[in-house]
Design a protein around this nucleic acid. Structure first.
Lengths: 358, 358
DNA sequence: ATGAAAGCGCTAACAC
DNA sequence: GTGTTAGCGCTTTCAT
C-alpha cells in the first residue's frame, strides 16, 4: 500500500504538506500542490480513511436510519441523500430499523455510538430524547426528515396543510360527499402522520360546510387502499363522490377498486392521493407532490451547514451536479436545533379528479 | 469520551486484556472477561471503530453497490444484506451507481479503494476485470449478486431455467400462442438478463412445437408492461392466449392492459411474470419467486466465509435472528473465486393463469 | 493468561 | 508556505 510518506518523498515535501495539499486544509503554494497532486496520482495514492478519521476525528460518513427500505418514499429519500452526500465526499451508511425494539437499541449502541458516523439522518423515525442527547453529546448532528425530533432540527411536512390542499381541490370541484382512506392504528407510530392527514381533510371538509366524511383505515399499501375503497364505494346509500387517500399507493388501490365495482374514475368518483408516487402519472392520479428525493438532499444540506459552518458546497470530481430544481423554496438549513424546517409540496392535478356528476 | 484505558484501570487489567476480552480475540480467563465486561458496561464504553480499524486493518463495514434503489428488487436485496450484516456486527454502506460513467469511477477511486470497506457486494452490476482486480489486490473480497463478475464469485440466477419454467407452466396448461414481454435494448446492460429470459421462453416454446412467439420490448416497469401488452393483445388476428412478462411489474402492467381491453384474466388471456413482487399476490399473479431478500443474505454468507474462513456465524446481541427459510437450498458459500453460485427459485401459481378457452 | 511496547497512517498544532 | 512533533485510540506481537 502506498502511503503518504512515499508521496511526500516523491514530491520532495513533508507528509504534512501532502496532507494539506490533498485535503485543501491549510495553505499550500500552487506549485507545491501541483507537484503533490501529480505524485499522488502517479503512485496511485489514496488516503486511508481510517487513519484520516482517527487523526482528524471526522469519518466523512453519515448514518441514515429508516424504518423500511422497500417503500417508495424511503428509498427515494435515501437516494436523494446518498447523491448529495457523495457529491460532498461523504458516504452513507444505512441502518434499517425494521425490527424495532431490541434491534433498535442494538443499532444505537453498537453502531451509531461507535464513532462510525459524523452525523445521522433519521427518516420518519422519532428518536427518543435520550438517543438524540447522546448523539449530540458526541458532537454528532442529527436531523430528522418527515417529523419532529426532540432537540434536533427536522425537515417536516405540514401534513395538515397537505391534506387540506388536496381536499380543498376536491371541494372546489364541487364535491361534498367525500370519503377518506387514512392510516390505521398501526401505521400511526411515526409522527401521527396518518392522523394529521386525516385531520387536515376533516378540517377542510368541515370548513366547507360539508357533512363529516366517512373514514376507513388502511395500511398505506395498494391492497390496503383497495379494500378500504371497496368499503367506501360499496355503500349503496351514501357512496362518496370523491375519495382522498392518505397516500398514493392507497389511492391507486382505490382506483382499482372503483374499476372493479364498475365505477368510472373520475366520472363516478374522483380519487386523489398524497406523495406523487412513481406510478401516479401512469394512473392519472391527482395528488400532492412531496418530493422525497429533494427531502433527502435538504437533509444533507442541513447536516452540512452544521458540520461545516462555512459551507461552500465542495464537490468531489466526477460526481453528479446538484439538483437545483426547487432551490428557491429551499428551507433555511441553519434553523436552530429543535426547529422544524418546513418542506414544500405541490398540488399535481391529473385525470383522476373532476367535477361530480350532476 | 471513555477510552480503553479507563476500562482497563477500572477492571484492574491492561488495555490489551480489555481489547481481548471485548473482542473475543485471544485468550482471557472467564473471571477477567467478566470484570472487564462489567466495567465497560458501567462506564458506557464503546470501542472507537476508527481506532480499531486503523490498528487491525478491518473496518467491519461492507460496501453495497447498486444501479438503482427505487426498484423493488434492489431494495429487497439490500434489505436482506443489511440484516445479515448487522447480525454479524457489520455495517452496510450504500453506493448508488445510478449515474454510470464518470460517477462510477469516482465511487470507485474515492470510496471503495480508500479502505472504507472490508468487502463489496455488487448487485446486478458488472464490475470490470480491472475493478475487481484492484479490489482483490487490496484483499477485499467481492461478490456479485444477479450476474457473473469476472474473477469473483457471484450468486447467479439461471435466468434461462427461470423463464423456461414459467413458460412451460403455460404450455402445460395448453397454451400454444404465447406472447412475450421482454426487456428492450436499454435494459440489457446488466448481464443480458432480459435476453436470457427471452431465450428461455423461446426455447420452451420451440421445444413444445409451438409457433415462435411475438416479442415486444419494455422497460421493466408497470407502464412499460402495459404498453407492450396493448400491442400484443390489441392484435385482432393473432391475439396470444398467454403472455409471459420478464418481470412482475411488466406482468402487472399487462394485467391492467388486458382489463382495459375488456379481456378477462385468465379467461381470455393468461398472464405470468417473474420475481414474486410484493404486489404479485394482490394481482393474483402467477410467477417465479426469486427471493431477493434471501439473495442479499446469501451474498453476505459468501462474503463472510471469505472474511472469516472459520465461520461460526457470531451474533451481535439484540439483533434479528437469521432467516432460515430455504436454508436447505443454500448455495455453497465457499465456491471458488469466479464461480457462479446458483440461486434457487420457485414457481408460484396464482390466479392469472389457466387453461386457454376452448 | 496477561502486560509492555510498538505501531496502524494520518492530521494538527506549533515553530520557523 | 512548509517542516517537526505529537498524538488519535486501539490491536497485536512478544515476553513473561
Amino acid at each position: 500500500m502506498v502511503g503518504i510518506g512515499e508521496v511526500a518523498r516523491a514530491a520532495g515535501v513533508s507528509a504534512a504538506t501532502v496532507s494539506r495539499a490533498l485535503s485543501g486544509n491549510g495553505p499550500v503554494s500552487p506549485a507545491t500542490r501541483e507537484r503533490v497532486t501529480r505524485a499522488a496520482l502517479e503512485l496511485g495514492y489514496v488516503v486511508s480513511s481510517t487513519a484520516s478519521s482517527l487523526a482528524s476525528g471526522r469519518t466523512k460518513n453519515v448514518g441514515a436510519v429508516v424504518p423500511f427500505l422497500g417503500r417508495w418514499y424511503f428509498s427515494a429519500v435515501i437516494e436523494g441523500a446518498e447523491r448529495a452526500l457523495l457529491r460532498r465526499g461523504y458516504d452513507l451508511t444505512l441502518y434499517n430499523l425494521a425490527g424495532g425494539g431490541e434491534e433498535r437499541r442494538s443499532v444505537f449502541e453498537h453502531f451509531l455510538l461507535r464513532g462510525r458516523v459524523d452525523a445521522v439522518i433519521a427518516v420518519s423515525l422519532e428518536l427518543t430524547a435520550d438517543e438524540v442527547t447522546r448523539l449530540l453529546a458526541l458532537g454528532k448532528p442529527v436531523v430528522g426528515v418527515g417529523g419532529p425530533i426532540p432537540g434536533a432540527p427536522a425537515l417536516t411536512m405540514d401534513d395538515i396543510a397537505v391534506s387540506r390542499l388536496i381536499t380543498e381541490h376536491l371541494i372546489s370541484l364541487g364535491h361534498t360527499r367525500i370519503g377518506l382512506i387514512g392510516g390505521d392504528r398501526e401505521s400511526d407510530l411515526d409522527f401521527h402522520l396518518p392522523t394529521s392527514r386525516r385531520h387536515g381533510s376533516e378540517q377542510a371538509i368541515a370548513e366547507a360546510g360539508c357533512p363529516p366524511p366517512r373514514v376507513v383505515g388502511a395500511d398505506f399499501t395498494i391492497p390496503g387502499g383497495y379494500r378500504a375503497a371497496k368499503q367506501l364505494l360499496g355503500d349503496p346509500h351514501a357512496r362518496p363522490t370523491a375519495i382522498v387517500a392518505a397516500s398514493d399507493e392507497m389511492a391507486i388501490g382505490a382506483i382499482l377498486a372503483a374499476r372493479d365495482l364498475g365505477l368510472n374514475v373520475p366520472g363516478d368518483v374522483s380519487i386523489a392521493g398524497i406523495d406523487d408516487h412513481d406510478l401516479a402519472e401512469f394512473f392519472g392520479l391527482t395528488t400532492v407532490a412531496l418530493h422525497p428525493t429533494r427531502q433527502g438532499e435538504r437533509a444533507v444540506d442541513a447536516l452540512m451547514s452544521r458540520l461545516h459552518p462555512d459551507a461552500p458546497v465542495p464537490t468531489v470530481p466526477g460526481t453528479p451536479a446538484p439538483d437545483d430544481r426547487g432551490a428557491v423554496h429551499a428551507p433555511d438549513p441553519d434553523a436552530p436545533a429543535g426547529a422544524a424546517i418546513p418542506l414544500d409540496f405541490d398540488l399535481v392535478v391529473r385525470s383522476s379528479t373532476a367535477r361530480p356528476a350532476v
